[in-house]
Each structure stands twice: as structure tokens, then as C-alpha cells.
Amino acid sequence: MASGRPIQLFRNMTAKIAAIPMILTALVIFVGGTAWTVVYSFTNSKLLPRANFVGLDQYERLWNTNRWIVSIENLLIYGICMLVLSFIIGFVLAALMDQKIRFENTFRTIILYPFALSFIVTGLIWQWLLNPDFGVQNVVRGLGWVSFEFDPLNNSSIVIYGVLIAGLWQGTGLVMVLMLAGLRGIDQEIWKAARVDGIPMWKTYLYIVVPMLRPVFITSIVIIASGIVRVYDLVVAQTAGGPGISSEVPAKYVYDYMFQGQNLGQGFAASTMMLLAVAIVIIPWAYLEFGSRNRG
């Protein structure tokens, strides 16, 4: 090695060899599978994939389908509410936990526990809780408020919020734990300095701590956002897309058309649109996030 310039390709040979399986997996399964899906979304494949290209037909049909439009709207409502609320609730809970309270472990466990349940179980639990005859409505009426009405799952216009409640119940604990870990990473000296300067606690949180938690926030956003885009099992278990089609989501459309409808082309077109939507959000963000760091 000392005699000539090392060839770039052979530097760190063992590390590169060790990475080959990972690289192959990434290329063949993730990139390859994605490319294959996109290509076949331009075909009229039914039950089995067939390379019979029909141009943009599948996309045309997709965007003329009411159910797809409803799915997109639902995903937007669910996504925005989920992101904002789980962030706020998660952060507030974490900040409360951070006040050196008693039984912190117990509370933390209780709040994180729903995350250990699958979406299917979550969906079923909340289907029962929101059932007017057995759940919340019945309990409140039992307490004496007879005219109380709370029946989101059977009301087309608010059913997606019923799903949202279940999603929040399940997912907020994780956000709280992530934020709490971030808060614990804040140097105590900063708190002391803020106190010496007489800055009120809420201001310290908002102007000093939150900006310092940026990496934790980004991790949380990625985790929550990926959970939002692929929301499927929760809806299947809780409402099965109903009443009517009012709680349908895109992932369910993909599944239903690929497998139940035996129309792979349509399913692929829908999943390509989902990929595109994610890409539109991720790419500019990644560019800003990582591009600027390289420059700096």
C-alpha cells in the first residue's frame, strides 16, 4: 500500500464486502420491486402480472374513481390531525413527565402500553368503545346524561375522527417516549442558566428546549408520517372502510383492487400514486435537510 496510491474501490475492502448483502437487498428488493410496480402500473394486469401496456388507462380510471378521492381526503384529514395532535399531546405529556413527578415509571408504562398493541387489536378495542350500545355513549348515559350522543363510527361525516382517536391512543405514547428521551438529553446547566436569567418555564421550553430537540422531532416526524401513509389495518379492524366508503384509505384501495378485485394494474397505479405523494413530501425536505449540511 505504501508503494502507490491506494485504489479508491479497494479501500476498506472488508467493510465493502460485508455491505454487499445489504446493498443487494436494497437494490433488488426495494428499488427493483418499486420499479417493477411502477412499470406494471401501465399494464392491464388482472390476477397475474402481464406485460400488456395500456398507457395511462389505470391512472385515468383511478382518478375518476370516487372511492380513491374519498381515500385521499381521509388520508389528508387523518394525516394532518395525527401529525399535529400526536406531536402536541406527545410533547405536553413528555414535558409533564419531565417535572420529576412521582411514579413516573408507572405513568410512562401506562401511556406507552397501547403502542405494544397491534393496530388490529386497537381497532377492535375502539370499535367497542365507540359502539353506542356498549361504549362511551352508553356509559355517559348511564351516569344520567340521557340525551348524550357520541356515535362517530356510524356517522359518515365524522367516522374518520373515530379512527383518529384510536390512532392517537395507540401512537402518542411512542412520541412521548421519544420526546422524553430528548428532554433528558438537555443539559441541566441550560435549565439552571434559564432560571438564573428569570425566564419563565414555558418560554424556556418554547424558545430554548424545542429548538434543541430538532433531531428528536425529525425522527418522530418520520416515524409518525410513515405510520400515517400506510394506515390500513386500523381501518380494516375498526370500520372496514364504512359506513359506505367514508373511512376508506389509499392503502386499503391498493389491497382491495390488487387482491379482491383481481386487478393488479389498478392496485399498482394506486400504490405508485402513494409513492409519488411520499416522494413529493420527502425529496424537498431531504434536499433542505441534507443538502444544506453538505454546504456548511
Binding site: K46, L47, T65, N66, R67, S156, G242, P243, G244, I245, S246, D256, Y257, Q260, G261, Q262, N263, Q266
Partner: peptide
Amino acid sequence: NTEDTNNQLNDLFVEFFND
């Protein structure tokens, strides 16, 4: 009908009967 057509009919009518 093919399953695809049935699926489309399902989507239409489940929406119709609930809305």
C-alpha cells in the same frame, strides 16, 4: 362479471346505500 367489475359495483353500491 369479473371480480374487478364486481369490486367496482361493490364500491358504488356500498356508497349509495350508506349515503
